[in-house]
Design a protein around this nucleic acid. Structure first.
Length: 400
DNA sequence: AACTCTAGCAACCGCCTGTGT
DNA sequence: GACACAGGCGGTTGCTAGAGT
């Protein structure tokens, strides 16, 4: 049973001075029944009234969360299917950590479920030294970039040019790359099955392989050699003919608590959240930055643009380096100039950058990503069966 | 068998937005 | 416009089961 706390312990902005106590912690079957009975009778909503009329000693927020995440009849339980996994990857690539929006496209799945799934997956990938997004997703994003650079077709069929305003709105909409044509079966599924089925010891390379153990604990600091480059993991990935991906790595925001390191090291090791891609946001200076120093982006053989943080002064080079150095050999993305704008830009804030954002982010069409208001965020997607348009109406999310 | 560690999951927290007054 | 309130969202934390030592 959870502890009891006062209503004003629930983080409400309001100064609720009610001495009423609420239950906290895991829900009991009896509580679930009370909540189900209440919702059956009164419907969803007005969650604070639940506590008042149902006899539950739970705050409204807790009731809502319990209903939405666990008690709704339409909920789908069990592991994510391959299609669901693919869709989550695609959606995350296009919208970042917008779990609720993703949940809207995954019938029966909750935002919390998707969030947990993604974070778990993220940790796995980070540990394995594998990039977060399949190559195809990024490639599609780049292709979309070349198309969107000329005009921008919104989902309602209208075409508009990139005024600043429209750009800001565009960034809220789903980019027009067509996941329907992604060959994810050859990539993501492989990738996913790898994550699911391959014993950790095998993936981690011979130093950690053991025929007698299903799983070996992997030293999280052994991903990089002394130069900070990927070692066994990446090499083994190549030996195993894993599909190679290119990603924008974590940024190293010096002096920022938004730093992500890969592999995790030091105090940041406990902070593994990696909400899509991150990049620096030198205020108002993106264009100048890119024209003056194109080094942050590295042209790969398949024309995929990847961003490289400066290696100098980076305590732990990112995943990109693991991939770039491991897969392209001599194509080394080095920018060791401590005066590099990118490095200096680390003093500024950052923006979230998904492949979709990258796709829209040409040298001439640089936008600040992220909606300015929540209404923009929400309305930009509410209308849409866009994902069904993109993915095809015949997708069956309920089959396993 | 006891202990340690980790993944997965459920729940909470704080902030934000929309709505009604 | 200011305020109160309800609800939603994303980040974070804590618990538990299972695997490894």
């Amino acid at each position: 049973m959870g502890k009891v706390l006062r209503e004003d312990d629930f983080g409400s902005d309001q100064d609720v001075a009610i001495e009423k106590t609420f239950q906290k912690g895991p829900w009991t079957p009896a509580e679930d029944q009370l909540l189900i009975a209440y919702v059956d009778k009164h419907g969803e909503g007005n969650w604070n009234a639940v506590q008042k009329h149902s006899g539950l000693s739970r705050c409204g927020k807790s009731c809502r969360l319990r209903w939405v995440n666990h008690l709704r009849p339409s909920l789908k339980k069990g592991a994510f299917t391959d299609k669901e996994e693919q869709l989550v990857i695609e959606l995350h690539a296009s919208m970042g950590n917008k779990w609720a929006r993703m949940a809207a496209q995954l019938p029966g799945r909750t935002d919390n479920e998707i969030k947990n799934f993604w974070n778990t997956r993220l940790k796995k990938l980070q540990r394995l030294g594998l990039p977060i997004y399949p190559d195809e997703v990024l490639e599609q994003a780049m292709n979309a970039s070349s198309q969107n650079g000329q005009n921008s077709n919104s989902l309602d069929g209208t075409t508009h040019h990139h005024s600043q305003e429209s750009l800001e709105l565009d960034c809220l909409e789903i980019p027009e790359f067509d996941f329907k044509y992604l060959q994810l079966d050859n990539c993501s599924s492989y990738y996913q099955s790898l994550l699911r089925n391959v014993p950790m010891g095998n993936i981690m390379g011979s130093p950690y392989m053991s025929p007698n153990r299903k799983r070996l604990r992997e030293p999280e600091t052994d991903f990089l050699d002394t130069d900070g480059y990927a070692t066994n993991d990446e090499q083994n990935a190549q030996l195993w003919d894993y599909p190679q991906f290119h990603v924008v790595p974590e940024t190293h925001l010096l002096g920022s608590d938004a730093t992500y390191s890969f592999p995790p090291s030091g105090p940041e090791a406990e902070k593994l959240e990696l909400p899509s891609f991150q990049c620096f946001d030198p205020p108002g200076d993106w264009e100048r930055l890119l024209h003056s120093n194109p080094m942050p982006f590295v042209e790969m053989s398949d024309s995929t643009l990847v961003q490289s943080p400066p290696l100098a002064d980076c305590p732990s080079p990112g995943l990109l380096e693991s991939v770039v150095y491991g897969s392209s050999g001599e194509k080394q993305a080095t920018n060791t100039d401590p005066d590099s704008p990118l490095l200096q830009s680390s003093l500024f804030g950052h923006i979230e950058l998904t492949p979709a954002a990258t796709a829209n982010n040409t040298e001439t069409d640089l936008v600040r990503f992220g909606p300015t208001t929540s209404s923009e965020r929400r309305t930009s997607l509410e209308s849409g069966d866009w994902i069904r348009q993109l993915l095809g109406e015949d997708r069956d999310y309920h089959t396993k």
